[in-house]
Design a protein around this nucleic acid. Structure first.
Lengths: 232, 232
DNA sequence: GGGCTGCAAGCAAGCGCTTAGTAGATGGGG
DNA sequence: CCCCATCTACTAAGCGCTTGCTTGCAGCCC
């Protein structure tokens, strides 16, 4: 069986490739060059997401990518390199999204709403990827972990600053800024439980979470329709 | 070095034992019999909590417990057995706590407050243990995973019923019961980030979270002891 | 002195990764 | 237009090591 599979390697590989080509609905890996490495990167995302970094073998990844166990090492020196490249791409993306979100509006309610909307939509749409980068980053070695933690701290800082700003402007009612910030950040990651076959689309879920978090920070949902408070 | 360590096994073991004797501040493993197995159970909690189930070797656990690699197998047939016993004990405890919490009060605000208070306090005090059972339970095989998931579903159901009850009685203001339930459940697990050397005690954190979640479900903070001016 | 408890030693399997080598595309010289 | 050197992408084979777990035996407490 193994011999047959490998004999028709070309067709097999394409079939595998097609399978996890759409791992990232937003195409976060589309720019990765060379194309060969993209194959292993998306295969690694699928494997890590399903069983976790440590439980995933390099052979699992190679099989998903439709190559022999050694194929990985044409593009990546270690299994950890795969995890690191995945982590950097995903964290850079959500950091950019968060930075962009706070630039859309001037008022605190609009800003925090936009941060929540974008982040929840991302975590739901990209839940396969997000499960990897929000769980397995602890497996990285110290210098690489530091680089990822730095990006995570930047996101935390943006959210904390927005909460503080809303409080200063008298728009939010929060007793404990740090507590509220951590609560918000924790809520944004819906990836661990989100199911794309469930009742809520990412966009619907995002609106539910915008409402919940606005109430949590004591910002009243102004007006009958949700866009009234957001459009500036 | 390794030789010396093993030569003075007795004293070393007691030192190790003392180290992770207080892994569980609430003494969740105090009733485990025989005592020998308790040693390995608490050692496994420390090891799993620090590096995760798959990254922890049986030798790590044995070393922490102050025994040879084979020592574990006097009490446990497999590494997974350790994880399973840990998971059952912890889940049974927090399930009992949650059942007890909703029995304290009659009014929805009092009930949900008590659930949040007990759960957050538990997750903060027992953050080493909670980190294991809320992350690594996915590593269990299907039948054991099913047993754990059943207990987790029971907790979810209690919280969902409390949210629904509060809405029915007109005390809570929630647009989406399922969304609010998942949000609450996610907030309760503070273990991944809680640091006992941080500024907040478990009890203080619990009160912050009670306030946040009450606002999230649209229940006003009744009583004037904290901050009567929640509704600005 | 019999039953636990625990250890030293080690096994089979599986791990991440390396090596030597090749099929197939590429492209410049004759 | 063909030949062949070159290069890239890939594989078969397997190395050295670690893993979870087993075995056979020894101390020790009742």
């Amino acid at each position: 069986m193994a011999t047959n599979e490998l004999a028709e390697g070309g067709a097999k590989r394409m079939a595998f490739q097609r399978e996890h080509e759409h791992v990232s609905p937003r195409g976060l890996f589309d720019q990765v060059e060379p194309k060969g490495s993209r194959r292993f990167l998306t295969a690694a995302v699928v494997a890590f997401s399903g069983r976790g970094y440590h439980a995933t073998t390099t052979r699992d990844i190679a099989t998903l990518a439709g190559s022999s166990p050694a194929g990985i090492y044409t593009y990546y020196a270690t299994k950890a390199d795969l995890l690191y490249e995945i982590s950097v791409i995903a964290h850079q993306y959500i950091l950019d999204e968060t930075i962009a979100a706070v630039a859309v509006h001037e008022d605190p309610i609009g800003r925090i709403s936009e941060v929540v909307r974008r982040s929840v939509t991302y975590h739901a749409e990209e839940h396969v990827l997000a499960r990897v980068v929000n769980t397995d980053f602890r497996a990285l070695d110290v210098p690489r972990l530091a680089a990822i933690l730095k990006m995570r701290r930047q996101i935390s800082t943006i959210v904390r600053d927005e909460v503080a700003r809303g409080v200063e402007l008298g728009v939010f009612d929060v007793n404990h800024i740090e507590g509220a910030t951590i609560a918000i950040l924790r809520l944004l990651d819906v990836a661990p439980w989100y199911n794309e076959r469930g009742p809520m689309s990412p966009a619907e879920l995002a609106e539910v979470y915008v409402a919940l978090i606005l109430k949590m920070v004591g910002a009243s949902h102004q007006g009958g329709d949700r866009d009234a408070a957001v459009n500036g």
